[in-house]
Deep mutational scan, measured.
Amino acid sequence: NQASVVANQLIPINTALALVMMRSEVVTPVGIPAEDIPRLVSMQVNRAVPLGTTLMPDMVKGYA
């Protein structure tokens, strides 16, 4: 199964993503693939992302 990017902490709106904020986990539904974690670093989220939430492409500015 494909691992997705999951929030490792609460990520406030407009926060630039850092490695420590993300982990990979096999979840349903599938979100952003875990292999894209390096690409996500320094991109901003466009909403608050609670701990344990799967990151979806529409949550990250400039990802989709």
Rank of each mutant, 00 (worst) to 15 (best):
residue 1 N to E: 15
residue 1 N to Y: 15
residue 1 N to A: 15
residue 1 N to W: 12
residue 2 Q to P: 15
residue 2 Q to L: 14
residue 2 Q to F: 14
residue 3 A to Q: 10
residue 3 A to S: 09
residue 3 A to L: 12
residue 3 A to R: 09
residue 3 A to M: 15
residue 4 S to V: 02
residue 4 S to L: 02
residue 4 S to E: 01
residue 4 S to K: 01
residue 4 S to C: 04
residue 4 S to D: 00
residue 4 S to F: 03
residue 5 V to G: 01
residue 6 V to G: 00
residue 7 A to F: 03
residue 7 A to V: 09
residue 7 A to Y: 03
residue 8 N to R: 12
residue 8 N to A: 14
residue 9 Q to V: 11
residue 9 Q to W: 11
residue 9 Q to R: 15
residue 10 L to S: 14
residue 10 L to H: 15
residue 11 I to V: 06
residue 11 I to Q: 01
residue 11 I to Y: 00
residue 11 I to H: 01
residue 11 I to T: 02
residue 11 I to N: 01
residue 11 I to F: 00
residue 12 P to G: 08
residue 12 P to F: 06
residue 12 P to T: 07
residue 12 P to R: 09
residue 13 I to C: 15
residue 13 I to G: 08
residue 13 I to M: 12
residue 14 N to Y: 15
residue 14 N to C: 15
residue 14 N to M: 10
residue 14 N to T: 04
residue 15 T to K: 05
residue 15 T to Y: 14
residue 15 T to Q: 10
residue 15 T to I: 07
residue 15 T to G: 05
residue 15 T to H: 07
residue 16 A to L: 12
residue 16 A to G: 07
residue 16 A to Y: 14
residue 16 A to Q: 11
residue 17 L to I: 12
residue 17 L to M: 06
residue 17 L to Y: 00
residue 17 L to D: 02
residue 18 A to N: 08
residue 18 A to M: 12
residue 18 A to I: 10
residue 18 A to F: 06
residue 19 L to D: 05
residue 19 L to K: 07
residue 19 L to S: 10
residue 19 L to T: 09
residue 19 L to C: 09
residue 20 V to D: 07
residue 20 V to R: 14
residue 20 V to G: 08
residue 20 V to I: 11
residue 20 V to N: 14
residue 21 M to F: 06
residue 21 M to N: 05
residue 21 M to P: 00
residue 21 M to V: 03
residue 22 M to D: 00
residue 22 M to I: 10
residue 22 M to P: 00
residue 23 R to V: 05
residue 23 R to D: 04
residue 23 R to H: 05
residue 23 R to E: 05
residue 23 R to I: 06
residue 24 S to C: 07
residue 24 S to E: 12
residue 24 S to Y: 08
residue 24 S to N: 06
residue 24 S to V: 11
residue 24 S to K: 10
residue 25 E to W: 06
residue 25 E to H: 09
residue 25 E to L: 10
residue 26 V to H: 10
residue 26 V to R: 05
residue 26 V to I: 13
residue 27 V to H: 03
residue 27 V to Q: 04
residue 27 V to I: 06
residue 27 V to T: 12
residue 28 T to H: 10
residue 28 T to N: 11
residue 28 T to R: 04
residue 28 T to P: 00
residue 28 T to M: 09
residue 28 T to Q: 10
residue 29 P to F: 03
residue 29 P to S: 03
residue 29 P to T: 05
residue 29 P to H: 04
residue 29 P to R: 04
residue 30 V to E: 15
residue 30 V to H: 12
residue 30 V to M: 14
residue 30 V to C: 06
residue 31 G to N: 01
residue 31 G to V: 02
residue 31 G to A: 03
residue 32 I to W: 02
residue 32 I to V: 06
residue 33 P to E: 04
residue 34 A to S: 14
residue 34 A to W: 07
residue 34 A to N: 05
residue 34 A to R: 05
residue 34 A to V: 08
residue 34 A to F: 06
residue 34 A to D: 07
residue 35 E to P: 07
residue 35 E to C: 09
residue 35 E to Y: 10
residue 36 D to Y: 13
residue 36 D to E: 15
residue 36 D to Q: 12
residue 36 D to K: 09
residue 36 D to M: 12
residue 36 D to W: 08
residue 36 D to F: 10
residue 36 D to C: 09
residue 37 I to E: 01
residue 37 I to P: 00
residue 37 I to F: 03
residue 37 I to C: 04
residue 38 P to N: 11
residue 38 P to S: 12
residue 38 P to A: 11
residue 38 P to R: 08
residue 38 P to L: 13
residue 38 P to I: 09
residue 39 R to I: 08
residue 39 R to L: 12
residue 39 R to C: 15
residue 39 R to N: 08
residue 39 R to H: 08
residue 39 R to W: 11
residue 39 R to V: 10
residue 40 L to D: 00
residue 40 L to Q: 01
residue 41 V to G: 02
residue 41 V to R: 05
residue 41 V to D: 02
residue 42 S to W: 09
residue 42 S to D: 11
residue 42 S to V: 03
residue 42 S to Q: 09
residue 42 S to P: 02
residue 42 S to T: 13
residue 42 S to H: 13
residue 43 M to Y: 12
residue 43 M to K: 06
residue 44 Q to L: 14
residue 44 Q to P: 06
residue 44 Q to C: 14
residue 45 V to G: 02
residue 45 V to N: 01
residue 45 V to M: 06
residue 45 V to Y: 00
residue 45 V to A: 04
residue 46 N to G: 07
residue 46 N to W: 08
residue 46 N to D: 09
residue 46 N to K: 12
residue 47 R to Q: 10
residue 47 R to H: 08
residue 47 R to I: 13
residue 48 A to F: 11
residue 48 A to I: 14
residue 48 A to W: 09
residue 48 A to V: 13
residue 49 V to R: 03
residue 49 V to I: 15
residue 50 P to T: 09
residue 50 P to A: 14
residue 51 L to D: 12
residue 51 L to E: 15
residue 52 G to F: 04
residue 53 T to Q: 14
residue 53 T to R: 14
residue 53 T to D: 13
residue 53 T to K: 09
residue 53 T to A: 12
residue 53 T to F: 13
residue 55 L to P: 01
residue 55 L to W: 01
residue 56 M to A: 07
residue 56 M to L: 13
residue 56 M to I: 06
residue 56 M to F: 09
residue 57 P to M: 07
residue 57 P to Y: 13
residue 57 P to A: 13
residue 57 P to G: 07
residue 57 P to I: 05
residue 58 D to N: 09
residue 58 D to Y: 15
residue 58 D to F: 14
residue 59 M to N: 05
residue 59 M to H: 08
residue 59 M to Q: 04
residue 59 M to R: 02
residue 60 V to E: 00
residue 60 V to K: 02
residue 61 K to H: 13
residue 61 K to R: 15
residue 61 K to Y: 11
residue 61 K to I: 14
residue 62 G to S: 11
residue 62 G to I: 04
residue 63 Y to F: 07
residue 63 Y to C: 04
residue 63 Y to L: 05
residue 63 Y to E: 03
residue 64 A to L: 13
residue 64 A to C: 08
residue 64 A to T: 12
